[in-house]
Nucleic acid binder design. Structure first.
Lengths: 196, 196
DNA sequence: AAAAACGGTTAACCTTGATTAACTTTTATG
DNA sequence: CATAAAAGTTAATCAAGGTTAACCGTTTTT
């Protein structure tokens, strides 16, 4: 049983596909090993693949005008990652996507995905639901940024994604939440103090 | 020629459908007139329809813990609006959606949309692309909130959506950008001063 | 095994944009 | 058309969270 089993289960959990279709879907992916600190996407280049994380951790980020970087997405086992706009519209990326630890991924090429969506109505539906879920997820993040303080956002985050806290460095979480590492330190400090 | 012509063109511009399919699609919509200040979605109720704006302006917002409201979306002619999560997952809404002026809309019911997506592969594709576009749009907004100052966000907004400035009140734009109306006043004031 | 790079902490000081409040202008309504 | 309600402005004060900088432990690299 190979590493693609994880992907197969990820798909099956979301949508029941006939055996043949599921096999065709999974067969379109290639398994790859990525070393810590290795980039899988860089600005200027077109994101030609969509990446599913079998095991590992990744971070996507943009570098702002002032040179500081801003985390767009954090992803661990069983998540997808890419420069979404670059992949969807097949235009040059604006983000970096980098491995935060040695990882194993499954990647599908843009053209292969298009072919599968055209050939199988169900796979089109799978990606439609995936995109809807992503849009809803993004919207929750927008609402959080409008309605919650930095401290609340941090507490919400660790409550919602406890797995991230273990795998992902503090600076990545800070820049995902739009705060500084110093401020996260302050929050953690305060929490520890109130617990004694 | 009725009001659904606008919707027909909106769809055709994004995807070329066979005549019969396009007609079936458009036939699933109902035209409605909505008065200024009328709500089309309210918290607790499930958003049963997706709304296309033929002519008019709408605002969706959530009310935060402290009682202040936060604009999630602004939409004018040729845009869609709803409580997205409520509609997609058919669970109770958390947002208000209100008309900012007397408007004409075309609405499709959740079940009718599901039926069309199941029956026509092309319509499934249409909604897949719409969801992808929305996810990409939301992501741009997240990036802006992480990388740009309040003043930059305001200037970016009026540059990107000049039509909004005319139709949508200042307080709605302010709360969409996550700033106060007082601060917008300050920015506008500063800009006017530097232009003399 | 030493040096360098990376990740995190602490603290003083500062800036952006919020809050409060009084006031003006515009739009709705009986 | 008169009054109320809604929308926008101005200015003083304040707080959340950023900046700068020094320091420390832990990985990585040579």
């Amino acid at each position: 049983m190979n590493e693609l089993e994880v992907l197969k289960q990820h798909i099956s959990k979301r949508m029941s596909l006939p055996e043949e279709e599921l096999n065709a879907f999974v067969a379109a992916f290639t398994v790859k090993r990525i070393k810590k600190r290795q980039f899988i996407i860089q600005p200027e280049f077109i994101a030609r693949v969509r990446t599913f994380i079998i095991k590992g951790a990744f971070r996507s980020y943009v570098v702002g005008a002032e040179g500081t970087d801003h985390t767009i997405q954090l992803a661990i086992d069983d998540w997808w990652i890419s420069d979404y706009s670059s992949y969807i519209f097949q235009k040059p990326a604006t983000m970096f996507v980098v491995a935060l630890e040695d990882s194993i991924v499954a990647q599908i090429e843009y053209e292969a995905e298009q072919r599968l969506k055209r050939e199988y109505h169900d796979i089109e539906t799978f990606f439609r639901m995936a995109a809807e879920g992503l849009a809803a997820y993004h919207q929750r993040r927008i609402i959080a940024s409008l309605t919650r303080t930095a401290e609340e956002r941090y507490n919400d985050f660790i409550a919602a994604y406890p797995g991230m806290l273990e795998k992902v460095p503090q600076y990545a979480i800070a820049s995902y939440l739009g705060v500084t590492t110093q401020f996260i330190s302050k929050i953690r400090n305060k929490k520890a103090a109130s617990k004694s």
